[in-house]
């Protein structure tokens, strides 16, 4: 079954499955315990190394299982974990399992431009105002009309000593907001990179003991970024291209890493994201098989009642017109052939002397004849006329 088309062939919205977009991706940690070997951490010894790769390891079990930062003894105590997802995804959740006491403050950010700029998705803190200058998240969710970065309670320590950071985009979106119909929500869930800033360790520190050398290290595993490869409703899966980049397997006449534009010949109407109601497939231009390229014209699209705006370019086989649907000057439509036939347009072949011009009627093929001349190509004298010696008046009345 084709998830992007009905059984009858009609296009329908299709989306890739929910995956852990961070799985196997390289995590950039601003701090990882390395040298000198201390406290069972030695980056040169696999049995005692705690690299950031352990956060997103694909398959298998390792020992150790947790990434660990360097010992942090003085401010700043920030440690940043950045995960480039490789392409745009539509986020559903982000989670991170801590192997030691979870931090008291964490900021979660996303980038939509491969790390050039960052915006917050949410905060987690026991001191939202102090740490992030925000009020705690209301229990009812965001008050505004759109999603917003709220400050949630800090990850709670669990009996085993660890803790779990869990963020769901649903928690920061007003109820009733629908991804299909809300461009704001579509923008909110779109991300190319995720960044987690571990801002404040669990160890209580206040101004008085900020310099106190109470060593602390962040330690975590299982960084998950739940989401769908973003294909705008025009692909059911993402694949690796020959260059090793993750790209959508675009359908519906679309192309691009996110199926974000119409293919070159599929520009009869503007690109749109597919919805459950309407697939908004890009339509091929109607050129009767005589052109390989076309362009979109908004004015024509509006005039057609938003049905068709494609204009064929470089009509071949002596055809012309927006859809290559009539013959170019000097040619006429052969009624015995289909409009898509390569020989649908025949040369007028007007007689060089008998015809008054080279352009014939595009439907009948009749050339314009001089006085007294007849025939489709004006190659004979009409009854009652005879050929003269003058090329200007080739037929004269019979005496």
């Amino acid at each position: 079954a084709d998830p992007c088309h009905e059984e009858g062939g009609a296009p329908r919205v299709c989306v890739p499955g929910l995956v852990n977009a961070a799985l196997g991706r390289e995590v950039l940690a601003s701090s990882t315990c390395r040298q000198p070997p201390a406290q069972a951490c030695d980056s040169s010894d696999p049995r005692r190394a705690h690299p950031a790769t352990l956060l997103t390891l694909a398959g298998g079990t390792t020992s150790p299982v947790c990434w660990r930062s360097d010992w942090l003894t003085r401010a700043p105590l920030n440690v940043t974990l950045t995960v480039p997802l490789g392409k745009t995804f539509e986020l559903v959740f982000v989670s991170l399992r801590f192997c030691s006491a979870p931090p008291s403050s964490v900021a979660l950010l996303k980038s939509q431009d491969h790390g050039r700029s960052w915006v917050p998705l949410g905060f987690f803190s026991s001191r939202c105002g102090l740490d992030y200058g925000r009020p705690p998240a209301p229990a009812s969710g965001p008050a505004g009309p759109g999603p917003e970065a709220l400050c949630f309670p800090e990850p709670q320590p669990q009996p085993n000593g660890g803790g779990l950071l869990a963020f769901s985009v649903q928690d920061s979106s007003p109820p009733g907001l629908d991804l299909d119909s809300s461009p704001v929500l579509q923008d909110w869930v779109t991300a190319t990179d995720i960044r987690i800033v571990l801002t404040r360790p669990a160890v209580p520190r206040d101004a008085g003991d900020a310099e106190a050398a109470v060593p602390y290290a962040y330690s975590a595993t299982e960084l998950q970024v739940g989401g769908r490869c973003k294909c705008n409703g025009h692909a059911a899966r993402c694949l690796l291209d020959p260059q090793g980049h993750l790209v959508c397997d675009c359908r519906h006449g679309t192309e691009g890493p996110d199926c974000g534009r119409c293919k070159p010949f599929y520009c009869d109407r503007p690109w749109q994201r597919a919805t459950a109601r309407e697939a908004h497939a890009c339509l091929a231009c109607s050129c009767n098989g005589h052109a390989r390229r076309c362009r979109f014209n908004m004015e024509l699209y509006r005039l057609s009642g938003r049905r068709s705006g494609g204009v064929c370019l470089n009509c071949r086989h002596n055809t012309a017109g927006r859809h290559c649907h009539y013959c170019r000057e000097g040619f006429y439509r052969d009624p015995g052939r289909a409009p898509s036939d390569r020989r649908a347009c025949r040369a007028c072949d007007c007689h060089p002397v008998g015809a008054a011009g080279k352009t014939c009627n595009q439907t009948t093929g009749q050339c314009p004849c001089k006085d007294g001349v007849t025939g489709l190509t004006c190659n004979r004298c009409a009854p009652g006329f005879q050929q003269s010696r003058s090329p200007v008046a080739p037929c004269v009345k019979t005496p």
């Binding site: 007689h351 009854p383 050929q387 003058s390 090329p391 200007v392």
Partner: peptide, 23 residues
């Protein structure tokens, strides 16, 4: 009545050299 096609050889191009079609 079907008239014969125009005979190009009968035309006198003396005064109309510029109109004469290429052979």
């Amino acid at each position: 009545e079907v008239m014969p096609t125009l005979d190009m050889a009968l035309f006198d191009w003396t005064d109309y050299e510029d109109l004469k079609p290429e052979a």
